[in-house]
Computed example of a mutant assay.
Amino acid sequence: MEPASIGQNVIIGEDVSFGNNVTIGNNVIIYEKTKIGDDVVIQDNVVVGKQPSRAKNSILSESQKLPGAVIGSGCTIGTSSIIYANASLADDVFVADLATIRERVTIGEKTIVGRGVSVENDCDVGQKCKLETNCYVTAYSELGNYVFMAPYVVTTNDNYMARSKERYNHFKGVTIRDGGRVGANSTILPGKVIQEDGAVGAGSLVTKDVNTGEMVIGSPAKFYQKVPEDQLLKNQ
């Protein structure tokens, strides 16, 4: 089935499937075997289904060609965003301008991926999350449902800062469980876990796991208070 509307200079690869009422802007590239659901809007200069490239000195092994990307029904993909091959977006995901979603990433239903957000390879992001402008989700991370990341949050996965071969065995992203929230300009160190309803104050450096329903602040982040009852996920 053909999209309802196609802009100028659009390139569509082989075996791309479209649902009903798909709108495609100008200068869009959709690579082979991509699957696009109903009522999807793909704005100008978007790239969908791009195969990853590997630098000569990359720690990642050479990979086989990946399956196509999957874009669920009702999604919007903002201007100049890039969705890699083997990424999967559930229904009603909103991807703002200039965002990047890498290979082997899953994004849950009704999640918002903000302007300039980068979700690196091999991440799982749950439903109804909100990843605000320019936050960075490092590779091998897991975000539950209703997770909130404020602008310029940085997550990390390499405690060895690119030195020593030992680091190859210790790469680990962060885990933010259901209802976890992270304030603006905070940094989370590799492998740290923010438990359910855990909260991190703005500008904090998370060097230890955050307990369920607790708020931490500072650098390094320390216990500040229990999350107020009216802010708990169960009371929303």
Rank of each mutant, 00 (worst) to 15 (best):
G74N: 13
T106R: 11
T155M: 10
I83Q: 06
R102T: 05
I101R: 07
A85Y: 08
T76H: 11
S80C: 14
Y84P: 03
M149I: 13
A99N: 09
A150P: 12
L66E: 09
C129E: 05
A55V: 00
Q127W: 03
K50Y: 02
S58G: 04
A139K: 05
Y146F: 12
T79Q: 13
D122E: 12
T138G: 01
E120N: 12
S61V: 01
K65C: 00
R54V: 06
G108K: 10
Y140V: 00
A162W: 04
Y136W: 11
I59W: 02
V125C: 14
A69M: 14
T111C: 05
S58E: 01
Q51C: 07
I101T: 06
T111M: 06
S81H: 05
T155E: 12
T138Y: 00
C75W: 09
V93R: 10
E132M: 15
T111V: 07
S73N: 15
A87T: 06
E62L: 04
I107V: 15
G72V: 14
L89N: 10
D91N: 15
V137E: 01
N134H: 07
V93A: 10
V70A: 04
I59F: 05
T133I: 09
A87L: 03
E132R: 13
G114P: 13
I112R: 12
L60E: 10
V113S: 11
V117P: 10
Y152H: 15
N57Y: 03
R102K: 15
N57T: 06
A69Y: 12
G116M: 11
N86V: 03
I71S: 08
S81P: 04
N134I: 01
I77N: 05
T138C: 07
T100K: 14
D122I: 01
V125Q: 10
I59N: 10
T100Q: 12
V113A: 13
I82Y: 00
S141Y: 01
E132I: 13
E103H: 06
S63K: 11
